[in-house]
């Protein structure tokens, strides 16, 4: 894990890039990009909805990575004005994810987001979650802006 600079976006300001609201906000800090890889972090509290018996499950880490990707997309991609009012960012696909370990209450986990592809409406991102020097989960996700007034994801 590299030494990160001070965060450029912190909770609660980070919510301007996320449609989620508490108790479903799973990113505390966004550190910006270093060598084309964006970094995030999240402190795991005991009352987190994805904590079970003191363990932050793989579901929680996957959601942290998904939200890390959405924050990175929101920070990098200029959303077309005509879509801003009616759209939201959603994850449409997880691919080739490997779960090596989970995390625990009291841990601060870090996310790394590397863009594989992006345009104004979607992005394919390689994401990795770390705790200290260990990789917890890694894989590729696809995020997309969808029309909030329609329910089919194309």
């Amino acid at each position: 894990m590299i030494l990160l600079p001070p965060p450029i976006i912190s909770y609660p300001d980070i919510m301007q890039y996320l449609p989620q609201r508490p108790p479903m906000v799973m990113v505390d800090f966004y550190y910006g990009e270093i060598d084309e890889e964006a970094y995030t972090s999240f402190f795991i509290k005991e009352d987190n909805v994805f904590v079970e018996d003191g363990i932050f499950t793989e579901m929680g880490i996957l959601d942290f990575l998904a939200q890390s990707g959405i924050v990175q997309m929101g920070h990098k991609i200029q959303i077309p004005e005509e879509l801003k009012a009616s759209s939201m960012g959603v994850i449409t696909q997880f691919k080739s994810f490997h779960v090596h370990a989970t995390a625990s209450v009291g841990d601060t986990i870090y996310g790394k987001v590397k863009k594989i592809f992006s345009n104004a409406y979607s992005a394919s991102l390689y994401v990795t979650a770390f705790f200290e020097d260990s990789i917890l989960i890694e894989g590729t996700l696809t995020a997309m802006l969808i029309d909030n007034n329609r329910d089919v994801i194309k």
Binding site: T57, E58, L62, V90, I91, T92, Q93, F94, K95, S96, F97, H98, V99, T102, G139, D151, V152, I153
Partner: peptide, 16 residues
């Protein structure tokens, strides 16, 4: 159980 891999997971439509 705990997932060890998610080879492919596709979200086709939101569940309300």
């Amino acid at each position: 159980l705990r997932f060890s891999t998610l080879d492919h997971c596709k979200f086709l439509k939101p569940i309300e």
